[in-house]
């Protein structure tokens, strides 16, 4: 399964809806999307991962890269994920301490830094 990406604005936040598999083959597409958004001035991102079937460390690296980019502009990158198999990867790598992870897009939109 390939990677699907779509973006929409909710208030001052930009929601990136991701579907499919994020791995060494598809992660560059997500990286390009995040870089493009930051370059366009979108510094408060919400990555909705509810449609993600598979995530590996390459995908984690891309999300970390995105976080660093928005932080350079005093922005934020929040994740939306309820899937245990995906959350487990964040826990294993300790990244639950780095990313705010929410149960829904609404919750992420309402959250303050």
């Amino acid at each position: 399964m390939d990677l699907s990406l779509s973006t929409r604005s909710v208030g001052d936040r930009t929601v990136v809806e991701v579907g499919g598999e994020i791995d060494v083959y598809t992660a560059p597409k997500l990286r390009e999307q995040l870089v493009e958004l930051v370059n366009e001035g979108h510094y408060h991102l919400i990555v909705d991962m509810e449609g993600v079937d598979f995530l590996d460390s390459t995908g984690l690296g891309v999300l970390v890269g995105g976080l660093k980019r928005v932080r350079a502009h005093e922005g934020s990158l929040r994740l939306v994920c309820n899937q245990e198999r995906i959350l487990k990867i964040f826990r294993i790598t300790g990244l639950t301490k780095v990313f705010p992870i929410h149960g829904s897009v609404d919750e992420a939109v309402a959250a303050n830094d």
């Binding site: 460390s57 390459t58 891309v62 976080l67 660093k68 990867i89 790598t93 300790g94 990244l95 780095v98």
Partner: peptide
């Protein structure tokens, strides 16, 4: 380890996360 991956990830210095980060993260997983 997760701690090593975390320390690499937490270095929010504006860089995009390089090969060492990917490699360390992969082995941590």
């Amino acid at each position: 380890s997760a701690a090593e991956a975390l320390s690499l990830a937490a270095g929010a210095n504006g860089s995009s996360g390089g090969e060492q980060t990917d490699d360390t993260m992969g082995l941590a997983v």
